[in-house]
């Protein structure tokens, strides 16, 4: 299992790319383009976007858990303002917010 050091540290603010590629993708639509915070680094796992097509040599990617304020995901959200949704997202879907790069 090789690869560069994780690009983001827990607590870093990140934005999910607002991309809509075809095929097997494990980044939910509802968080694309949204801003969240790295909750933890989960480790390195083979990229499911390659694995799904039978590529057993799929590259290892850093997987994070990213927390989003529920109100930032759903404009009409009426629960507690501290409610969160935490989502597993691969590094290539995340960009740093300016000034927050680690």
């Amino acid at each position: 299992m090789t690869g560069a050091a994780p690009r983001f540290a827990p607590g870093a603010r990140v934005r999910v790319y607002e991309r809509f590629p075809p095929g097997h993708v494990r980044t939910p639509w509802y968080c694309r383009g949204k801003t969240g915070e790295i909750e933890r680094i989960c480790g390195r796992f083979r990229n499911p976007e390659q694995l799904a097509y039978g590529n057993t040599e799929a590259v290892y990617e850093v997987l994070y858990r990213v927390g989003f304020a529920s109100r930032s995901l759903w404009p009409a959200y009426d629960g507690c303002e501290r409610d969160r949704v935490e989502i597993e997202i691969y590094e290539h879907w995340l960009e740093p917010l300016s000034g927050d790069m680690t």
């Binding site: 989960c42 480790g43 507690c80």
Partner: peptide, 15 residues
Amino acid sequence: DPDSRIRVHDSTADM
């Protein structure tokens, strides 16, 4: 409790 907070964990990948 309306004052408690919810963490929803979306199991989207390898956890």
